[in-house]
Design a protein around this nucleic acid. Structure first.
Length: 574
RNA sequence: CGGGGCGUAGCGCAGCUUGGUAGCGCGCCUGCUUUGGGAGCAGGAUGUCGCAGGUUCAAAUCCUGCCGCCCCGACCA
């Protein structure tokens, strides 16, 4: 394409409302424009990159045996009532009515629609397994859209759904997707890692998130220094510590102390001159309307997802003043497990503590020398805390480290959550009607593009890896008014087009500096510079965006050199 | 939803405290010169100052309400 004819509005200045690098660069490079909060238009350059990702996704999904479909974005209320999500999905689901006052929503995901499709057309085990996918626009009414296309409301997503006759089959389907996802993100040239994830309210046995490593990532992930264990922080397990023998003779006698206005761990620890590690924090939770006390060591934080999973509740939040008063007989800040009026669960961190401090369930009082077994009992010791750096690995005992990532893909083993609710059944070999077992698999297309930029940029702009580059080459005639220069440029351009290279000819009547800056900003991997001096020697200059490496080639050789370079970048293994 | 900030030319911003003919840089248009890392000179175009109401002789500026956008938090298949 000739630059002079391209719709490629680049900007020198950083837009004031863009915070993260990828967002700033996507706007400056003329890839996207914001229409309104969380809703973006893709311009030609941006859309080309989107299509590159989509193509890689398509090829790998097809290779894994999935088949592409295209499902409606507007979905009727009935399906969502059937699955139960009309109530449970919450405000992220954008709902509206048509002229007949019938209710609909914009699809944030497609389990309902696809399960409806499948249940109507699949009757026998002979038709299983199936894996159908689509690449489509989703809408989720995010509370707070941010970071450009990274967390927006309208976005492109590849979503796949597998249906199997039995557990073993479902397992296999999951494995296939896991492999396909690794292939996809490898081909995109991304540094990523799959991590274990919480399967959340969608249910299901287990799930993995594919995280692109980036300091700007929204997700905290943990990984083991020694083994392959990696998990989302909210999922990161903590192994059960060894139970120490606590000698009852070491128990000191329980003591009530006056601690006026000392509510927080910091205040209590400062007031009583004890370490936070010697205090047991007692948090009162409201779990679906019922109270529950969670005990944890003072220097640790509760991982509410773990509490939620243990209790098996739909909703979990810290109790309000009223519930705390009911449970502890005291205002907030003085809760303790001694004579508390609710069930009590404790994190492993509390298991081996002796003579610790807790609230006394009385305003302005705490207990010292509290001991489990004598002063109160707990229902269970379980893993309830947020993992910390240098914790020991739950698999091998090695050290846990932290990193940040951007979630670009997610694979879920769904089980029968939707197929059961929506009666997606089939007739098995034995003539019995059985429920299909599902998996679902998502990839954020736009987010993958943004994540790629987060990993590949410098002070001059984007640095596309070859597989995602909107164009592979940009030809820069230093001065279009010099006849020889233009003649050579045109001829290289024509040859490149002829052998299928994706190339821009920067035929604008701009000074060289302007063209170089734009080429760098939009991140084209290979720049061909045609200038009078080198041309006089019969030479053409090739510059690699990523390394800033400069090479000279004879005019006759340049196209084949470029072609070879591109092929090598696209198939690094070969 | 709680807290904070912002809204003035396409983009980035000043002006607002103390009301009095709307400015700067970049970009854009014309001409000349220049031509290997965002050129120089000269000339030029572009604004319902987010919207609505109020105070005032007079409002970008003061007051009230609304809308939008961004950040932090809460939330997040």
């Amino acid at each position: 394409m000739r630059y002079s004819e391209m719709h490629l509005p680049t900007a020198r200045e950083i837009p004031s409302d863009a915070e993260v690098t990828s967002h700033q660069l996507m706007i400056r490079a003329g890839m996207i424009r914001k229409l309104t909060s969380g809703i973006y238009s893709y311009l030609p350059l941006g859309y080309r990159v989107i299509r590159k990702v989509e193509q890689i996704v398509r090829e790998e999904m097809n290779r894994a045996g999935a088949q592409e479909v295209h499902l409606p974005m507007v979905q009727p209320v009935e399906l969502w009532q059937e699955s139960g999500r009309w109530i449970h999905y919450g405000k992220e689901l954008l709902r509206f009515r048509d002229r007949h006052e019938r209710e609909y929503c914009l699809g944030p995901t497609h389990e309902e629609v696809i399960t409806d499709l499948i249940r109507n057309d699949i009757k026998t085990y002979r038709q299983l397994p199936r894996n159908l996918y689509q690449i489509q626009t989703k809408f989720r009414d995010e509370v707070r859209p941010r970071f450009g296309v990274m967390r927006c409301r309208e976005f492109g997503m590849k979503d796949a759904y597998s249906y199997d006759a039995d557990e073993a089959g479902a397992e296999k389907s999951y494995e296939k997707m896991f492999v396909a996802y690794n292939n996809i993100f490898n081909r995109c040239g991304l540094k990523f890692r799959p991590v274990e994830a919480d399967s959340g309210s969608i249910g299901g046995k287990y799930s993995h998130e594919f995280m692109v490593m980036a300091d700007s990532g929204e997700d905290a992930i943990v990984f083991c220094e020694k083994c392959a264990y990696a998990a989302n922080l909210e999922k990161a397990e903590i192994g059960e510590p060894e139970k120490k023998n606590i000698a009852e003779k070491d128990w000191l006698s329980l003591e009530s102390v006056h601690t006026p206005d000392a509510c927080t761990i910091e205040e209590v620890s400062a007031f009583l001159k004890v370490k936070p590690q010697d205090i047991v924090k007692t948090l009162i939770y409201n779990a679906d309307g019922k109270s529950c006390a969670v005990l944890i060591r003072g220097d640790q934080d509760v991982n509410e997802i773990k509490v939620k999973n243990y209790l098996g509740t739909a909703e979990l939040e810290l109790a309000d003043e009223g519930m705390i008063l009911k449970v502890t007989d005291a205002p907030r800040g003085f809760a303790g497990a001694v004579k508390i009026n609710t069930r009590v669960i404790a994190d492993y961190s509390v298991m081996n503590m002796i003579n610790f401090v807790t609230g006394a369930n009385k305003q302005d009082y705490h207990f010292k020398n509290v001991n489990i077994g004598r002063d109160f009992n707990v229902e269970a010791f379980i893993d309830l805390r947020v993992a910390q750096e240098n914790d020991s690995c739950p698999r091998c005992g090695g050290k846990i480290k932290f990193a940040r990532g951007i979630e670009v893909g997610h694979v879920f083993k769904l089980g029968t959550k939707y197929s059961k609710a929506m009666k997606a059944a089939f007739l098995d070999k034995d003539g019995q009607e059985k429920i299909m077992i599902m998996g679902c698999y998502g990839i954020g297309i736009g987010r993958t593009v943004a994540a790629c930029i987060e990993q590949n940029f410098d002070e001059n702009g984007i640095i596309w890896p070859m597989p995602l580059a909107p164009y592979q080459v940009i030809i820069t005639p230093v001065n279009i008014n010099e006849e020889e220069v233009m003649k050579a440029s045109e001829s290289i351009y024509a040859s490149m087009l002829a052998c299928g290279i994706e190339v821009i000819l920067d035929d604008r009547d701009e000074r060289a500096g302007v063209k170089f800056k734009d080429a760098d900003l939009i991140g084209i991997p290979i720049r061909i510079t045609v200038g009078q001096k080198n041309l006089a020697q019969g030479n053409i200059e090739l510059k690699i965006r990523k390394t800033a490496e400069n090479r000279l080639y004879p005019l006759q050789k340049i196209v084949e050199e470029v072609k070879a370079l591109i092929d090598q970048e696209l198939n690094p293994a070969a």
